[in-house]
Nucleic acid binder design. Sequence first.
DNA 1: AATACGGGGAC
DNA 2: GTCCCAGTATT
Length: 359
Amino acid sequence: MEAFKIALDKLQFQKDLISWFAEEKRDLPWRRTSDPYQIWISEIMLQQTRVDTVIPYYKRFVEKFPTLRDLAEADEEILLKQWEGLGYYSRARNLQAGVKEVAEKYDGIVPASRKEISSLKGVGPYTAGAVLSIAYGIPEHAVDGNVMRVLSRILLIEEDIAKPKTRKIFEEAVTELISHEDPSSFNQGLMELGALICTPTSPKCLLCPVREHCAAFHEGKQHELPTKTKAKKNKAVQYAMLAILYGKSVLMEKRPSTGLLANMWQFPMIELTEEVLPLEIEEQLSENFQGVVSNAEKITSFKHVFSHLTWNVDGYIAKGQNLNVPSHMKWVTAEELELLPISGPVQKMKAVLKQRGDV
DNA sequence: AATACGGGGAC
DNA sequence: GTCCCAGTATT
């Protein structure tokens, strides 16, 4: 059955963990609701994102879209604006797609089986288990980075947690260990322990409620676990970002619906594949838009680092006339600009323009 | 199994 | 600078 033996006193472990959680858990906004829809929102936002970052977003989001149907009917532009700055924007699109399916196919009730909830867009193995256990009290595993770190130490599991295959080992372990009395507190307790006590570096073992159950602590190996390999390359790309002004409007373009920053708005950009002198920018622009772009002036220059990509951006301001504007672009006023969802680098450019008084 | 997908905080 | 975070979708 299990890939290894559980050597600890399961019932005592459950009790120690759940008691500690009841006593020490943080007062977080999504812990004040039992609405599966709102808990779902929190779990999506918390994917690869810190609790402190999520809190203000979560509050605004549930205020803006209090019910599942509110979100199902929301305009995507409004939705993305709410998500602006949180990152991983496909989460927002997938969440709405999932919510729409629940509204139509499940009469607005978030399904309570792993099979059904896992079929929803953006709901993977972790999120499925989290919503099932927290919202419905169903004893399902919810294995995230915290849980793998905590259990790798407690059970002395030395498999590389960077490998996709390894997650299954921890899912089996949780399935074996989970409390059927209080699955919600058990799963949340494991994660809370990882966040507050069993941290990546310098775990606070002397404060740990389950250190007597911890194999790594007994062998002094808590600092060596979890095993995690990591290798990633970061490419760099050069762009010219153009604020093209005409009267009181500025030209904006919508990014494609897939890939990086999908559906987000930005100032038109040109990739500088080769050495391009500032003088050539105007020519390129005029050509791209089959119109007149003049007075190009570099006003800023910055670097923006993504996970696997770095943008080196030169920001220009220019005047546009008689431009042939493609369908994915539009002229917007300063007021309209405030409504468009934009990503980090575009916010940097926008800030420079506002400071200069150009928009 | 690898890679793409954001942004911010900790060290 | 590097690593990590209440991961998932795509290839």
